[in-house]
C-alpha cells in the first residue's frame, strides 16, 4: 500500500507551550505575523467543574481536500504521501483555496503573494529524517507523525489503541490529522 502520511496530537499530554509553533516558524521561515500551526485551547464548564482541551492545530492534509479541488491552476496539489502542498510558481494568489478551507489553515505569504501552509515538513522527510520540526521539538512528545498505511508505524498503532477524533468530519474532507482523547 502506498505511503499516507498523517499526524496525531495527544491532547492529554499537550501543555500548549507553543514550542511547535516556534519550531515551525524557524524551520520553514514562516513570515512574521503568520503561522502554519497554532495552539487552540477550549475551556468548558463552570467552576469548579472545568475541563480544558489543548490542541496543536495545522493543515489537516485532507484526503478529500477542497483546496486542491478549487485551485484553478493546479498550484495546490496532492504531493508525496498524500500531503497537500502548494507550488508557489503556479499560484496566482486568487485565494479560492483559503475560502474553500473550512479549517482556516492557509494564508498569503506577504513576501511572495503565494499561498502558504503546513507541509508536514516534507523536505525533512525526503532528506531522510523521520520527524517534523514540531514533533521533534515537542517537550512532552505529544505529536505523532508517520505512515498511516503501515500498521507497524507508531502513529498507526497509537490511533488503533486510543480513542481519537478529527476536526469537522461532517465537512466530508477526511482529515489525516487526528487528536487523541
Amino acid at each position: 500500500m502506498s505511503v499516507r502520511y498523517g499526524m496525531a496530537i495527544d491532547t492529554k499530554s499537550c501543555v500548549g507551550c507553543a514550542a511547535c509553533v516556534i519550531a515551525c516558524k524557524k524551520e520553514n521561515n514562516v513570515p512574521n505575523g503568520h503561522s502554519r500551526d497554532w495552539i487552540f485551547t477550549s475551556t468548558i464548564g463552570s467552576y469548579p467543574e472545568l475541563s480544558m482541551t489543548i490542541e496543536s492545530r495545522r493543515c489537516n492534509h485532507c484526503e478529500n481536500a477542497p483546496c486542491v479541488t478549487v485551485c484553478p491552476t493546479g498550484a495546490s496539489y496532492v504531493g508525496p504521501g498524500g500531503t497537500i502542498l502548494v507550488n508557489p510558481d503556479k499560484c496566482t494568489g486568487c485565494k479560492a483555496c483559503i475560502a474553500a478551507c473550512p479549517y482556516g489553515a492557509r494564508f498569503v505569504d506577504p513576501r511572495t503573494g503565494s499561498i502558504d501552509k503546513c507541509t508536514f515538513c516534507l523536505h525533512r522527510i525526503e532528506d531522510g529524517l523521520s520527524t517534523t520540526a514540531c514533533q521533534e521539538i515537542c517537550p512532552t512528545s505529544s505529536i505523532f507523525f508517520g505512515d498511516l498505511s503501515d500498521p507497524e508505524s507508531e502513529i498507526a498503532q497509537v490511533l488503533a489503541e486510543r480513542d481519537n477524533y478529527t476536526l469537522l468530519p461532517e465537512a466530508g474532507t477526511e482529515p489525516r490529522h487526528y487528536f487523541l482523547k
Partner: peptide, 13 residues
C-alpha cells in the same frame, strides 16, 4: 461557560 483561545496568526482568516 466556554472560553476559547487560539494562538493562530492568520490575518485573512
Amino acid at each position: 461557560m466556554q472560553e476559547l483561545t487560539s494562538t493562530r496568526l492568520n490575518p485573512l482568516v
